[in-house]
């Protein structure tokens, strides 16, 4: 995953350079903070990818001379159809809409979200 790591490091480096440049030319505080926070975002992912590569080595997907056969076994376990994403979305909407429309709606939303998150996590046990 070297190229991915380089990409994310590039994100971090770009934002720190442009952020410091913006600070140097007298940019506004909000802009400087946002640019430096974006550095953190890039750095966070870059760090994770570097560490992943260090621990696991290069992935077969990044070699130029391999075929499907070179990566066999269980690729992934995919979840089946589920009503939970829809219910969760309704819950989240109710949670936020409760802010202008009344706290009772937020309570309903929180209850839906909590129950659906619980059910979603239990789904993965089976």
């Amino acid at each position: 995953m070297k190229i991915e790591a380089i990409l994310w490091t590039g994100v971090a480096v770009f934002y720190i350079v442009i952020g410091l440049l913006y600070l140097a030319v007298g940019g506004d505080t909000a802009g400087v903070v946002l640019l430096l926070l974006a550095t953190g975002l890039g750095g966070l992912v870059a760090g994770w990818v570097w560490d992943w590569t260090r621990r696991n080595g290069e992935r077969v997907e990044n070699r130029a001379d391999v075929d499907a056969i070179d990566s066999t076994g269980v690729v992934g376990v995919y979840p089946t159809a589920s009503l939970r994403p829809l219910a969760l979305a309704i819950g989240v909407t109710a949670m936020f809409l409760g802010i202008p429309l009344g706290s009772w709606l937020s309570m309903v939303g929180i209850a839906i979200v909590a129950s659906q998150v619980l059910l979603l996590t239990r789904d993965t046990d089976t």
Binding site: D70, S71, T72, G73, V74, G76, Y78
Partner: peptide, 14 residues
């Protein structure tokens, strides 16, 4: 080769 790659530790994606 396959065993060494992703044979045993397939990622569980949910």
């Amino acid at each position: 080769r396959a065993d060494g790659d992703r044979g045993d530790d397939g990622e569980e994606i949910t």
